[in-house]
């Protein structure tokens, strides 16, 4: 039989493991809904017929447009297409008021990080999915999770706390960038990625 002391010890152990692995991750991140829902699937599928680069383009000066500005949305959605509630918000709150949509950017890196889509896509020929996974075929936008301490998006750390057995797109910490650079024999000097 287990001694009561050992039992209490194991109970404590179990308690903190539960807290640490299940409660803590939940409490650490603050969840925010996107200002409106958006379906990549609809836009890229038969209905929309768009390709990724129709909205997310590398411009001639080498800068990446990132999330497109409202102008891009308004070029099709100048008036409501369909009757969904989200469509109504898009047109009434943003397009007609000419207000930029305050999207919450999952892949947002801190301001001291420099990243060039042009060199990764054009020169290194990486696929979008290498870092962004299947985001491009998602049907809805998941809540944005913001780290309460650092303020970073959860996507920087990745979906799991342990960071074990992750896909290439799950997490974008400095380690992840460095490891990929190492694998591809690309320099890992500070100024390569910092500004």
């Amino acid at each position: 039989m287990l001694k009561p002391g050992l039992l209490r010890f194991l109970a404590g152990l179990f308690f903190s493991l539960v807290i640490g692995w299940y409660v803590f991750p939940y409490a650490l991140y603050e969840k925010f809904e996107q200002p409106i829902q958006f379906s990549h699937k609809v836009h890229t599928g038969e209905t929309g017929g768009l390709s990724c680069t129709d909205c997310h383009e590398i411009k001639s000066d080498g800068r990446f447009s990132g999330i497109p500005a409202l102008e891009k949305c308004a070029s099709c959605h100048s008036s409501a297409i369909g009757t969904s509630s989200q469509e109504k918000i898009l047109v009434d709150e943003y397009v007609s008021k000419n207000r930029e949509i305050p999207w919450l950017i999952y892949a947002k890196q801190p301001q001291n990080v420099y990243f060039s889509h042009a060199s990764h896509v054009k020169l290194a020929a990486l696929e979008c999915t290498e870092c962004h996974g299947s985001h491009g075929s998602s049907d809805s936008l998941r809540p944005f999770q913001r780290n309460r301490i650092s303020g970073y998006s959860r996507d920087i750390w990745g979906s799991t706390m342990s960071r074990i057995n992750r896909a290439s797109w799950d997490g974008a910490k400095m380690d992840d960038c460095e490891n990929c650079h190492d694998r591809r024999h690309v320099a890992n000097t500070c100024l390569k990625c910092h500004k």
Binding site: R8, F9, G12, L13, F14, S16
Partner: peptide
Amino acid sequence: MQFVGGSALGLLFTPI
């Protein structure tokens, strides 16, 4: 007491 000890040890094996 033992509970606290166990929690403390367990804590080290969590991400906290």
